[in-house]
Amino acid sequence: MTMAQTSSSGNGRGRPLKRFQWLIEPYLYLSPAIILIALVMLVPLVVGVSYAFQAIDLLDPFTTGWVGLANFEKLWADRLFWKALTNTFWWTLGSLFFQFFLGLGLALLLNKPFAGRGLVQGLVFLPWAVPAFLSGLNWAWLFNPIIGPIPHWLAAMGIMEKPQNILANPDLALWGPIVANIWFGIPFFAITLLAALQSIPRDLYEAAAIDGASLWQSFIKITVPFLAPTIAITVMLRTIWIANFADLIYIMTGGGPANSTHIISSYIFTTAFRRLDFGYASTLAIALLVLLLAYAMLILKMRKHLVKGI
């Protein structure tokens, strides 16, 4: 009982100290993450917003300072912006639609055991590991009639009159990066949905089978409701991610031919990186951010609905 003395003397101080420790401990673990994110992401975000109201053009260092809404007026009148906006829509929708449904199909296939499943899973997920710039270059090749097979196949199937590079055709060029993006993005959906599928309790299916449900019915009545929350969140995150994903377009078409394939994010990058016009780049970025936020709100509302509906 030697502890008796120490604790009775420490009585007064001991408790607040302990409570303090209880409050502070999680922040000890969190502080590196918080500091890093605040300094590298949140502060620049605020600064970035402020750029939109300034003239910051490194190629034109003499006109600087606050310019009010001038950048936004420029945006409104910018034909390229409106074109990029339309392209963003098609780019995102086209990529997402095929990534999702092909990814779901793949996840369903992989969810049932078969001989060699481990190997197949490793192989079909591989595109995700291919750096985006390499996929871009590689697909640019595949679409090139001189060194790639795809135009020849399309011609042989009668879809195309003669082997042509779709990347050189302003009306079709956007589909090149979209195909590359689908290839690249299927694994992400497959991995997430496979994980969600595997967390559905087996006995639910068994109970449904005993109740006389067909395969299709148990898919609709069990699988889909269970996946719905995951799907909503994943689709939302992916939409935002795809809309922001400029690498493939930048590599495959550089926004061309004749600026026909810029999406907003590739336009932002070109504006910042090529023209060094940071003010206008930030204005473009804010426009994209506002659109994405509105979209995210919509999805989150819908998700609440969905979750309630189950």
């Binding site: 009982m1 502890m3 008796a4 604790s7 009775s8 420490g10 009585n11 001991g14 408790r15 100290l17 302990k18």
Partner: peptide, 9 residues
């Protein structure tokens, strides 16, 4: 515990 206050142990 015994005659030791252990709240903070």
């Amino acid at each position: 515990f015994g005659d030791t206050r252990v709240n903070d142990l």
